[in-house]
Nucleic acid binder design. Structure first.
Lengths: 207, 207
DNA sequence: GACCTATACTGAACATTGTTTAATACATTG
DNA sequence: CAATGTATTAAACAATGTTCAGTATAGGTC
């Protein structure tokens, strides 16, 4: 008796996910701006109207899509294994991997991190005071910072600020590299290396 | 005889500018996403179709608008007057003014700097090798860097890389602050100050 | 099995978009 | 004055997001 409702609920969820999957494919193929309700409907082989039985509107679909995408991206986050014992090497390799995966994802990183809807921002906001306790990326950065001897004694809130600034710097570089997409690979590499070098210099000389 | 053509040309330019002005007002009031050809037409008191006699399409209008906006923004760029004699203070104040004017401009900075059309990018691209010779912001940054004694002897191309990284960092911070627009003013201020501090530390210890 | 009710779904419609085009008014030229 | 080219409009087209009246369907009740 009760499991009938469960099955209905399950089917509803499956339909919602089918819509999201179709939307995800379209976005991957044509970009977020070209996503349309009718294209989704065609792909799931239903009429366009039905989508409004499962989502409040296009905006809601996009938000859910970006939220799922964000979780995927974050799930691959962790420090490079400690085969490299020097904090500098670990920091550089971890940051480099983060930058390169973001770049490999093309415009997805950009779509996610620039979305201003509250439901997406509740996952992606990173600058507020106390963010480190809720954002794995910041927590990871702080752990990396603490692996430098000079910074072991630093207060949490100061390291958080530093992590936020470092994070914003990487964010800016990733976005610029995404926008200026015709940049030669060698220059791209030079910039990433220089970003890592200068950031490390800064870290090593924090007062 | 020839000046008839000149007058025609002039009237054409005036119409083009009237369209751009109307578009600019709408964007300022409602944002870039809400700009529409029909709204422009209504504001200039013509029918929508006429706009296509003056511009190739909506995209072309936006590009021209952003290009004009970019020139406006850049025109206000110069180093803080040297009443402060220490390079550090000059650097910090110049960067701070740049960050704060960008933030004050709301989403305009964002719309301009994230636009990917070649005609806009030809003004805004900043990461390519040799960019300092064409981008006042980068040239200014390099001049500021050279005012530090340690960096007087540095090669141009290395300082350019450093300027590009510093610029990208500011860019990332500005964008994050624009996206996370509900951040308390005190935290905003803390982040800007910390960005300036850490960047200065980096500059002072460049090898 | 007949009936009922809630849910799934469709087709058509509506309003709004960017854009094109046939027709027209107008100004300039010869 | 006739011809030519330019400026302008109204209407249409295609695509968009969204709504809604109606229809089928599936599950439960008598």
């Amino acid at each position: 008796m009760t499991n009938r409702y469960e099955r209905q609920e399950r089917e509803r969820d499956e339909m919602r996910q089918a819509i999201l999957d179709a939307a995800g494919l379209i976005v991957a193929e044509e970009g977020l701006k070209r996503l349309s309700i009718r294209k989704i409907a065609e792909r799931i082989e239903y009429s366009p109207g039905i989508i409004y039985h499962y989502f409040a509107g296009k905006e809601a679909i996009i938000e859910q899509l970006l939220r799922q995408g964000y979780l995927e991206m974050v799930s691959g986050l962790d420090a490079v294994s400690a085969m490299e014992s020097q904090p500098e090497a670990i920091f550089a390799q971890t940051m480099r991997r983060f930058i390169e995966t973001s770049l490999a994802d093309g415009v997805r990183y950009r779509d996610i991190m620039l979305n201003e809807s509250p439901s997406v921002l509740s996952h992606t906001a990173v600058l507020f005071s106390g963010a480190a306790s809720q954002r794995e990326a910041l927590a990871l950065l702080i752990r990396l910072l603490r692996s430098f001897d000079r910074l072991k004694e630093k207060q949490d809130d100061e390291l958080e600020l530093t992590a936020q600034v470092i994070w914003s710097g990487a964010f800016g570089l990733i976005l610029r590299l995404t926008v200026e997409k015709d940049l030669p690979a060698a220059q791209k590499e030079r910039l990433i290396r220089h970003y890592l070098e200068t950031t490390l210099i800064m870290i090593k000389h924090l007062e």
